[in-house]
Amino acid sequence: MAKRVLKLSFKNEKNKTKTITIADPKDGLSKEAVQDAMAKIVGAKAFSKEEVNLYAAVDSAKYYTTQSDEIFDTDAE
């Protein structure tokens, strides 16, 4: 079964990459829509750790699709 996620990458105030992963994202999101949403996260300055803003600058956004093929599952038996 394939699973799709949207990964939003930001730079924190120490120039380290921080990522927000969104499960089951909408298909076909435009660059502008995603950049605008990410800019709002940056502008909110709502997330910090040890006085470092975790989402200080927009970096990138990518869809990822993973495929898993079950061999067995003891919970399903």
Rank of each mutant, 00 (worst) to 15 (best):
M1L: 14
R4T: 12
R4F: 01
R4N: 02
V5M: 06
L6D: 00
L8S: 00
L8C: 07
L8M: 02
L8Q: 08
F10Y: 08
F10G: 05
F10K: 04
F10H: 03
K11F: 08
N12K: 01
N12M: 01
N12P: 06
N12W: 08
E13C: 00
E13T: 03
E13Y: 00
E13F: 00
E13N: 00
K14W: 03
N15R: 04
N15W: 06
N15K: 08
N15H: 07
K16A: 10
K16F: 04
T17V: 10
K18S: 08
K18T: 12
K18Y: 08
K18H: 09
T19G: 02
T19S: 08
I20Y: 07
I20A: 04
I20H: 02
T21E: 09
I22N: 00
A23F: 14
D24C: 00
P25M: 00
P25Y: 06
K26Y: 14
K26M: 07
K26E: 15
K26I: 10
K26P: 04
D27A: 12
D27G: 06
G28W: 03
L29W: 01
L29F: 03
L29K: 01
L29C: 01
K31C: 03
K31R: 11
E32V: 10
A33N: 09
V34T: 09
V34Y: 04
Q35M: 12
Q35K: 12
D36R: 09
D36H: 09
M38T: 01
M38G: 04
M38I: 03
A39G: 09
K40R: 13
I41H: 04
I41S: 06
I41R: 07
V42S: 08
G43D: 09
G43F: 05
G43V: 09
G43H: 02
A44M: 10
A44Y: 06
K45Q: 13
K45F: 02
K45G: 12
K45N: 11
A46I: 05
A46P: 03
F47P: 01
F47Y: 15
S48F: 06
S48G: 09
S48R: 07
K49V: 07
K49P: 01
K49H: 05
K49F: 08
E50A: 05
E50V: 02
E51I: 04
E51K: 05
E51Y: 03
E51D: 09
V52C: 02
Y55T: 02
A56K: 12
A56Q: 06
A57F: 10
A57K: 12
V58K: 01
V58C: 01
V58Y: 03
D59M: 11
D59K: 15
S60M: 03
S60C: 02
S60H: 08
S60E: 13
S60W: 07
A61G: 10
A61E: 08
A61C: 08
Y63D: 05
Y63P: 00
Y64T: 14
T65C: 00
T65D: 12
Q67S: 15
Q67K: 13
S68H: 15
S68F: 15
D69C: 14
E70R: 13
E70T: 15
I71F: 14
F72D: 15
F72N: 15
D73L: 09
D73V: 11
T74S: 13
D75L: 10
A76V: 12
E77A: 09
E77H: 11
E77L: 13
E77Q: 14
E77R: 13
